[in-house]
Simulated scan of single mutants.
Amino acid sequence: MASNHLKNTFHALNILLLASAIIEIVIAAVIYGKVYRVDLLSSLKSASAEIVLMTSGVLVIVCAVFSIYSANKDIGWILYLCGVITFANFVLQIAGFSMSFHFMLVSEVKSWMDHTFANIDEMTFARNSWDRMQNTLSCCGISGSSDWLKNRNGMPGTIPSSCSCKMGLDENCKSGPNYEVGCLSTIQWLTFDLAAGVAGLAAAMAFIQFIVGVLTFILARRASKQSMRI
């Protein structure tokens, strides 16, 4: 009876890890694909954290599936292997969420955006990069489309076409034909606020993985003893 309770707990924790890993991979992939493919943001150090978390999430899924299978079949050597990988992945999860929290520096991104936007008329690559960023992230300017209307070099500014969207076809078009959300707030949400959620999820998964790792070795020993009796 105790063995059944142990297996049931083991299965429940692995299923919880499976669900958490899928959520972690999806969110980390969205952040990476949405933010770090924009050339102006590709150098942000937190990109490495998303790669680590996606890699760890895949390992969690593989470990959980094999762990459940080997526990049901009482295959000791596979459980031992899964236990080793689980503990290794435990360290990887800690590294991932630690990197996510360490690189969340909004002030650095703000300073960098202010600098490139102030010199956007003198640097062609900066203007092209801003256009691509605004199109990709559905945002406009630093804090909003009004940033483009400020006088620059004694001339009134104009809102670029990269800030435009079609009414009714884009959910961001709520107050007019231009994106009204500033790129800083969009980047902050994607790179920092959402990443903080993924980092917190990774921390919780690391704790669960440690427990699963201990249970894996307990079940592996029982499976080995059972096979020796046979």
Rank of each mutant, 00 (worst) to 15 (best):
A2D: 13
S3H: 12
S3G: 12
N4V: 05
N4P: 04
H5A: 08
T9S: 13
T9N: 12
N14E: 15
N14C: 09
A19G: 11
S20E: 00
I22S: 09
E24K: 06
E24W: 04
V26K: 03
A28D: 07
A29N: 12
A29E: 12
V30W: 11
V30K: 12
G33S: 11
G33D: 05
G33Q: 03
K34P: 05
R37N: 09
D39W: 09
L40E: 04
L40C: 04
L44Y: 12
S46Q: 12
S46Y: 03
I51H: 05
L53M: 14
G57M: 08
V58T: 04
L59M: 09
V60C: 04
V60T: 08
C63H: 00
V65D: 05
V65S: 08
I68A: 02
A71Y: 12
N72R: 15
K73D: 09
I75M: 13
W77S: 15
I78R: 02
G83E: 14
I85V: 15
I85F: 14
I85S: 13
I85H: 02
T86H: 00
F87R: 01
A88V: 07
N89D: 15
F90L: 00
V91K: 02
Q93M: 15
I94R: 08
S98Q: 05
F103P: 01
F103A: 03
M104I: 09
V106A: 07
E108R: 10
S111H: 13
S111F: 08
W112C: 00
H115L: 15
D121M: 03
M123Y: 14
T124N: 07
T124Y: 06
F125H: 11
F125A: 05
A126L: 13
A126H: 15
W130T: 00
R132W: 04
Q134Y: 03
N135F: 00
L137K: 07
G141S: 09
S146D: 13
D147I: 05
W148E: 01
N151I: 01
T158Y: 01
S161F: 04
S164A: 15
K166W: 13
M167H: 08
M167F: 08
D170Y: 04
E171Q: 03
E171T: 06
N172E: 11
C173W: 02
K174D: 10
P177Y: 04
N178S: 13
N178L: 14
E180W: 06
G182K: 13
G182R: 08
C183Y: 11
C183F: 10
W189N: 13
L190T: 03
T191E: 02
T191P: 01
F192E: 10
D193V: 12
A195Y: 11
A199T: 10
A199Y: 06
G200I: 05
I208L: 11
Q209V: 11
I211L: 12
G213A: 09
L215N: 12
T216A: 15
T216W: 07
A220I: 08
A220G: 11
R221I: 08
R221K: 10
K225N: 10
Q226G: 03
S227V: 09
I230V: 14
